[in-house]
Design a protein around this nucleic acid. Structure first.
Lengths: 249, 249
DNA sequence: AAGTGGTCTAGACCACTTG
DNA sequence: AAGTGGTCTAGACCACTTT
């Protein structure tokens, strides 16, 4: 292949940012698959016509964002959105004693319908665009604790069906990643307390009016583009939403 | 002063980690004050007998942790825990439309008493150690929204009194930093929904039993040592707890 | 003009994994 | 032994701020 070196330092586009963009493009195009290895650093340096240090800086940032994973002596890999990463990066519910456990997920409903105005706004969709609307019940320690309502744009998930969703091997985000080439890289969450509605109360074994936690999560893909809108109703009698912001070391 | 070079690469202590430790020690000892400038990078490199690149790596991490602030052309400074930083790093309550506003704080009670077992556990104190117990009411848009209950070990804040606390110029954490040399660098938070108690309901204008958010925050200083335990009761009828985890760019 | 941090380079050497 | 990432160095050159 012809070597495609990067922009020539004209409008001050930082070299390592350009390298980062290219690496992201490789992931989005499928040129490197989830779990697959990147070229080694000296080859990347040759390909982009920069020094190894510049490649390392670009990779450093992608590693900090949990998008790439380095393994000394082995290589650098595209991070899979597997259970371990989901627990680490996205699942913030822990038992009172701090114990964290991967939830047992049961599909409650799967439907194709249209976005409400609020959903369209969150997902940056035009009008009442077609969406998939999915409800899950998540159990911890054998008891239903979380009632999830997922909304995703149908246009981003061509061919998605109930069976495919239900019979996925790993996490929901891993399905997005492996079957639709859509990588969730971050999320904005808004949390508040409210009285449980009738449906959530029934599904979680509560009385209507009991206090529950409501989490709105907007999951984002590259460039902070919204990809999934999710409302989670959590019974916090025995579990907490945890958020840690500690210096690295 | 006699140059004190760092460990001689014996037990594989990473050089940049050692530099980082020394810079933190300078902050804790008061050798560089909050808001004050560090030596320039080449002087730091000489002092620690390492290359500038190694100094930069240490400073990079401290900047990422919001402990230092770089200003190109001016220097590198110890970050002050002022309002802007408090809003950015610690205050996670926002109006439904996303608006963020620094709260108006009113002292409700100030007392010296002893730690409960749970508080002693959180703060890593022995037995029923002496603590200060402070209640604040925080108002947003002119209405009381948050009822804070702060617990701090008396031993860490010698000479703290009600007047000093009430008449502080800036944020609570800035008082800790400037008057007691204690820098808050991070926090662990646990959030859940519960029915409002009598006291919080009265102070926030709610009916007992209304759903409120309960936030337990353990604020940490260097080495993740606990420094403050705080319970915040939040009226989330018009405000949310927000948590964002987006890639840097 | 002088001083600061910011980017990028080229290369030495080390630590770890695999064949 | 060969190949990978990890640390550290020394220095060029640029961008920004202050005097």
């Amino acid at each position: 292949m012809t070597s495609s070196s990067l922009a020539g330092r004209s409008g001050i586009p930082l070299l390592y940012r350009e390298v980062k963009k290219q690496l992201i493009a490789d992931i989005q195009s499928g040129a490197v698959a989830p779990g697959g290895a990147l070229s080694n650093e000296s080859d990347l340096a040759k390909r982009f016509d920069v020094s190894i240090g510049t490649v390392r800086r670009a990779v450093d940032e992608l590693v900090a964002d949990n998008i790439l994973v380095r393994q000394q002596g082995r290589g650098t890999f595209v991070g899979r959105l597997d259970r371990a990463r989901f627990m680490f990066q996205f699942f913030k519910i822990a038992a009172r004693d701090g114990t964290r456990e991967f939830p047992q997920v049961r599909l409650h409903s799967f439907a194709r319908s249209r976005a409400t105005p609020a959903e369209a706004r969150a997902l940056a969709l035009q009008g009442a665009a077609p969406v998939f609307r999915i409800e899950n019940i998540l159990a911890l320690q054998g008891r239903p604790v979380i009632h999830d309502h997922i909304v995703i744009a149908a246009a981003l998930f061509p061919g998605l069906g109930k069976r495919m969703f239900e019979q996925r091997a790993g996490t929901v985000y891993e399905l997005y990643q492996s079957a639709f080439g859509l990588t969730i890289v971050g999320a904005d969450e808004r949390v508040r307390a409210q009285a449980a509605g009738e449906s959530s109360a029934r599904l979680l074994g509560l009385s209507p009016g009991d206090s529950v936690l409501r989490i709105e999560r907007l999951a984002l893909t590259f460039d902070n583009k919204p990809a999934e809108f999710r409302v989670s109703i959590v019974d916090t009698r025995e579990f907490d939403y945890v958020s840690s912001a500690q210096p690295t070391a």
